[in-house]
């Protein structure tokens, strides 16, 4: 097996009495685009900061590019591009000056790629950083972290607050560089639709915990919404079993979220629990539906 680019084992982080992260384990295979989803305060940024050695884990460990994250140093960051939402930028520098300043720090800096990205992202070389809009600033920091052809790109909330046009430019800029080499991208986002297009691996976090981490295709295949219509309101409530993540009853209909759906076998299993005159309608779920089911379930079980 090829060594994963990131692997986290039982990561935990406490800020005083607050447990921001508990027992988080996952791997990010080489060459994938991994999207980490979760509501605010779920621990996405904490996870990324631990991976980037900006925070020390209180428990567990993580390896990034084969090194313990606690030992990542400047040499490793010549292979990692990192863009965070509120990155500090040298405000008085012009875009071109910033790039010229960064170039000597990276042996793998690719001037041709840098120029190509400048054009593609429509960034003006002679504009000062402080005069750039928020979207332009994000594009500038993306450019600065792609031009040296890193093996791993880590993006913390890259799309938040960007207008749709800039968001598209940003994604295209990212894709134009990744599709020609085996780069790995790890990003956190609220933008579920963008993640569904871009990512082939997803993780879903709910406060402090990682609930799933797997290929997007597998996740979409195993989740199914099944609408059940019963002859009469179910009393007492039906025990649907552990594979049903959520069951919402309203009158004679029950809407199930099934997390291990396998077609007719699943339907037969469910049919055995209900009167014969009931009807079952399975329908595929979007990533948004799946995400919301997880988050809502967690909210209702942990008030």
């Amino acid at each position: 097996m090829i060594e994963p680019v990131i692997s986290a084992e039982n990561l935990g982080k406490a800020f005083g009495p607050v447990e921001a992260l508990r027992g988080t384990s996952f791997t990010v295979p080489r060459g994938c685009i991994y999207g980490l989803l979760g509501p605010n305060g779920a621990g996405k940024t904490t996870t990324i900061k631990i991976l980037m050695n900006l925070l020390r884990p209180s428990a567990g460990r993580a390896e990034v590019l084969g090194r313990d994250s606690k030992n990542l140093g400047w040499r490793d960051f010549q292979r990692i591009g990192y863009v965070s939402e509120n990155q500090l930028m040298p405000d008085d520098m012009r875009v071109g000056e910033l790039l010229d300043y960064l170039e000597p720090y990276y042996p793998t800096w690719d001037a041709a790629l840098c120029n190509e990205l400048l054009q593609q992202l429509e960034l003006p070389r002679d504009r000062r950083m402080k005069n750039l809009s928020r979207g332009m600033k994000m594009k500038a920091s993306l450019l600065a972290s792609l031009a040296f052809r890193p093996e791993l790109v880590v993006l913390d909330e890259p799309f938040s607050g960007l207008d749709p046009v800039i968001r598209e430019d940003f994604s295209r800029g990212l894709l134009s560089t990744v599709s020609e080499s085996e780069w790995t991208i790890f990003l956190s986002s609220h933008d579920i639709e963008e993640v569904e297009r871009l990512c082939d691996w997803v993780g879903i976090m709910s406060p402090g915990r990682l609930l799933v981490s797997e290929p997007l295709e597998d996740l979409l295949r195993r989740f199914q919404r099944i609408d059940v219509t019963l002859p009469a309101p179910p009393t007492p409530a039906i025990d649907w079993g552990a594979d049903v993540l959520r069951a919402e009853t309203s009158g004679v209909t029950v809407s199930l979220v099934h997390q291990r759906y396998s077609g007719d076998a699943t339907l037969a299993e469910l049919r055995a629990k209900i009167p014969p005159s009931s009807t079952l309608y399975p329908a595929p779920m979007t990533l948004r539906d799946i995400y919301l089911s997880f988050v809502r379930k967690h909210q209702s079980s942990n008030p």
Partner: peptide, 13 residues
């Protein structure tokens, strides 16, 4: 592959 990925904004894989 590269053009498809960029134009449609989808994962290269």
């Amino acid at each position: 592959v590269r053009q498809i990925s960029q134009e449609l904004r989808i994962n290269p894989n």
